[in-house]
Computed example of a mutant assay.
Amino acid sequence: MRSADRNTTRHPEVPALPAGDVAAASPPATMRDVAGRAGVSVSTVSRVVNANGYVRTSTRLLVEEAITELGFVPSGAARGLVARRTGLLGLCLPDMGPAGVGHAPWPAGPPVELVEDSGPAPGGASWGSMYFGEILRGAEYAAWEADHALAVAVARPPHEEARVRDLAGRVDGLVVVAGTLSDALLEHVAHRVPVVLVAGPRPAGGYDHVGVDNGEGIRFLVEHLVGAHGLRDMRFVAGRPGTRDDIDRFRGFRSASKALGLPVPAEPALRGDFTRDAARLLAGQVVADHRGGRARLPEAFVCTNDETALGFLDVLSAEGVRVPDDVAVTGFDGIDGARTCSPRLTTVEQPVADLGRFAVGVLRECLADPRLPRQDLIVPSRVLLRESCGRH
């Protein structure tokens, strides 16, 4: 990991705990402490912590309040070891799957069916983002190289807090994709294990961070669309409101538009949720409005991520809208699907697998020396010019 130090900015303003403070820290709260604080039995606390068995809402709220007050994190069996090391690292990802999938009926019928595939249907179920798959791949490989195992938790309601607390109690450290956990829960688990945030801007809470410069990537991309292709009528397609990466990318779009003398939008023209399915719905409405005379196509769609751009390509191609002749489409991330689609997608490539890999490296440094200053590691990105924005 020291080989990446040339890209690492250490921040001395975040004070490190002296060794004496670490040794003098109070012992972690136990399940019995929580039970005493909440005025319930240990078995009731166990049911709340493990989301196993019925507990009245009022009782559960008392237990959760006691957990927060005491900073309790469930302990795995290996935490009794003198070295206090499990050899297990954690990765926490957001829930990107469709609601209700876990309640599907047990499959019935023949083991194999012949079905004519008419192409992707807008709104179809998706098991999540290739972006997070790439982060997982990089993190797992780095953990394997260091002879660690990697445990993964998806922050999926309704028991995401219990699941994350349980994971934090079983691992030596935790890698968290920015925006996955609330600030309160993030601070809660960081009291017990080192936490490294992936993506998003530099966090205010003093956590170690690995990310890319989202605004600069979009700025370079817009400058290319204007300078090389003469495109000036562009629409930004955003993701979920309040997402930090999305906010930074839209700011970069606005900054580039202002610098190039283009109209500066106050809000994104369209908004999805980062998934290909949501983008297909948006693109379908765009094409319908265009053909119905209610709106015209812009010269380019600048999409907040690759999966959104791929969803637009799916529908535009199926509806006979030529890319890039009728409209250009660009993305952000550089996932594998961006280079295998047709036309190939122009995108800002952030080395997504490297984000996971470097995050595990930073986490291991934290474990080796908890007194190290916090790191804010910015991984370089690059604009990959392909056919979806024009002929080269």
Rank of each mutant, 00 (worst) to 15 (best):
T180I: 10
L181K: 09
S182A: 14
D183L: 11
D183M: 06
D183R: 14
A184I: 03
A184R: 15
L186V: 03
E187C: 12
E187H: 13
H188T: 07
V189T: 00
V189K: 02
A190K: 06
H191Y: 05
R192E: 10
R192M: 07
R192N: 08
R192G: 10
R192S: 15
V193F: 10
P194S: 06
V196I: 10
L197W: 02
V198P: 01
V198S: 06
A199D: 15
P201W: 09
R202I: 04
R202N: 04
R202T: 11
R202G: 03
A204H: 05
A204Y: 07
A204T: 07
G205A: 14
G205K: 02
G205S: 13
Y207V: 00
D208C: 03
H209R: 02
H209E: 02
H209K: 04
G211T: 12
G211K: 00
V212D: 00
D213S: 13
N214W: 00
N214K: 00
G215T: 01
E216F: 04
I218L: 12
R219S: 04
F220A: 13
L221W: 04
L221E: 09
V222H: 01
E223K: 09
H224N: 08
V226Q: 09
G227M: 05
A228L: 09
H229E: 14
G230S: 08
L231D: 02
R232N: 04
R232S: 14
D233M: 03
R235Q: 14
R235L: 07
F236C: 11
V237W: 03
V237Y: 03
A238C: 09
A238W: 01
G239H: 05
R240G: 02
P241M: 05
G242F: 11
D245P: 06
D246S: 14
D246F: 10
I247C: 07
R249G: 05
F250M: 13
R251M: 08
R251L: 13
G252P: 04
F253M: 05
F253V: 01
R254I: 07
S255T: 12
K258L: 13
A259V: 08
L260Y: 08
L262Y: 02
L262W: 03
P263I: 10
E267F: 06
E267P: 08
E267N: 10
P268Q: 10
P268K: 04
P268N: 12
A269I: 02
R271A: 13
R271K: 04
G272S: 10
